[in-house]
Design a protein around this nucleic acid. Sequence first.
DNA 1: ATCAAATCGTGATTTTTTTCTTTATTTAGT
DNA 2: ACTAAATAAAGAAAAAAATCACGATTTGAT
Lengths: 206, 206
Amino acid sequence: MSKNIPEKVSNRLTLYHSIMVEYIEEGIETISSPQIAQRLGIDDSQVRKDFKLLNNAGKCRVGYMVKDLKDSIEKTLGFAHAKDAFIVGSGHLGLALAKYDSFNSYGLNILALFDNDPQKVDMLVNNKQIFHISKLPNLVERLGVEIAILTVPRKNAQQVADFLIQSKIKYIWNFTPAVLKVPPEVKVWNENLMGSFLQFACKDII
Amino acid sequence: MSKNIPEKVSNRLTLYHSIMVEYIEEGIETISSPQIAQRLGIDDSQVRKDFKLLNNAGKCRVGYMVKDLKDSIEKTLGFAHAKDAFIVGSGHLGLALAKYDSFNSYGLNILALFDNDPQKVDMLVNNKQIFHISKLPNLVERLGVEIAILTVPRKNAQQVADFLIQSKIKYIWNFTPAVLKVPPEVKVWNENLMGSFLQFACKDII
DNA sequence: ATCAAATCGTGATTTTTTTCTTTATTTAGT
DNA sequence: ACTAAATAAAGAAAAAAATCACGATTTGAT
């Protein structure tokens, strides 16, 4: 599977998926590319090109089967093989992500949270326990977790990242504004909130 | 200003900016394109191309002045003209964003939060007050706010968005997984967490 | 049965983005 | 001074992404 879907495409696929979920809730069975395109403000041939990647044929004058599209998107994006992850940093952002149930349906399984604040330790968030950060290396090993979602304050980001790397974490989804220094075998994904906002802001708001 | 910086570029510019902030904290005055490129795992000529957009000349064998780069990035991305915004939805994500001080230094000024839970109303978060959602139309008008950051639960997203649009909000930064239906004059920016994660996940984790 | 409109599918074109290559410049070492 | 290495600058080439354009098909209306 996962034959190198470009970033932009997988981004759009999740948006399409959201629309499919909504159509299913409303009991609508078919959807056309212009409908989707208009909703997202993109070109309709773009939508059809994306759908071709899914091997999902549409029908002229009718459109695509909503249910089939939803299934193909899930299959293509690998929602099936769930990946386990830890949230590191149990501030508001960490808690928000722990409660974000969409993760689960998109194949990301949050097993636990971590923090260095003794007051937070042992709390339950959305049925997930908060552990003291010192327990992390052991749990990484026992549970075979490779992904950490980093939501600590900026000033602790590098230090905590170093600790994660020592603990054999292989993928860091970085929600902090720090640009982490990591060895080449560790992959970082910067969730760059301001970058995407600024694009939005610069384009229209002068 | 803001002569149509492409999304990818403004994304990279904020990452560069983060690195500049770090270098300044460490008292380092110059930085070279290969240094930055290695840190971000991209091509060094890419970095130079981006810097050319900033009209910021480097010096061979030395690199660029960190301070100058930081200033040009801020100027180009318009950190100077701060934009006011409301956070709509005071759950964990809303609170996390309200506490995210980086917004301020990036030119986004959160004026207040809103919620429909009477228990939350009048609380202060990072010196910003939480108002009942019913107060929003009036405050939009009085303060001339055009941007709303939407952090309500998915099932309320469209309904709240409709209310925002009625209230003359012009830009919605959508953190919910719903794909909003809006009239053409209202701009939506979907902060699609799963889309970016899946890209990260699909690429390397099989 | 015929026609018009909607829609898919797809190849061509254009635009955008990234990478490659070469040349010129600067610094440090000999 | 000369040489070597690092680096910027800039143009060329390649790759990727988006848009356009048009033929084919299906449906519903007349």
